[in-house]
Design a protein around this nucleic acid. Structure first.
Length: 150
DNA sequence: CGGGTTTGACCCGCGC
DNA sequence: GCGCGGGTCAAACCCG
């Protein structure tokens, strides 16, 4: 991963409290509504959240091989936070190390969808990056789960 | 050498 | 019951 953009947001995200901010259901404009689009490589202009149904529990990712994954129980829906950011590169450095584990093409969009996972052991955090179909200049980054480490 | 990235195949849930 | 879509894993390759 070679991110040409210097990381100046590491602390910015540290202050992020997903569990608290998760309160929206649609794209909401940030205070930077003016879309000033700072020169900073990335600045979340939009924030959306889609918590896993609070009432409708979704089955956890139980892989095939019904023998090693079995045992997982549905504790609570994982948090899903989506950020719409204007960026040229989809590899936004949020202060964590991500390992790409898959790429898929969306049928509704000519743009591929990249799947990332936290390299830290025990970190069940997953990241999904996709380019906006209507706004190629924008990148939608969806975070899933919470980091067990800072 | 290690870690990370890549692409295809595989799997699962749901819809029809 | 089968098909589609989306998601994940895995082997191989590349880079530092």
């Amino acid at each position: 991963m070679s991110s040409s953009n210097q990381r100046v947001d590491g602390e910015q995200y540290s202050n992020f409290e997903f569990s608290e901010f998760l309160k929206f259901d649609e794209w909401i404009e940030e205070d930077d509504s003016s879309l000033a689009i700072s020169d900073s490589s990335h600045n979340p202009v939009y924030r959306a959240r889609v918590v896993g149904e609070s009432s409708g529990t979704i089955s956890p990712p139980e892989r095939r091989s019904g023998e090693e994954r079995i045992g997982r129980e549905k504790k609570e829906a994982k948090e899903r936070v989506a950020f719409k950011t204007k960026s040229e590169v989809e590899i936004l450095d949020d202060g964590f190390k991500w390992r790409k584990y898959g790429k898929k093409m969306v049928k509704n969009s000519p743009n591929p969808r990249n799947y990332y996972r936290c390299s830290v052991d025990g970190c069940p955090v997953k990241k999904r990056v996709e380019r906006d179909k209507d706004d190629p200049d924008y990148v939608i980054t969806t975070y899933e789960g919470v980091h067990i480490h800072q």
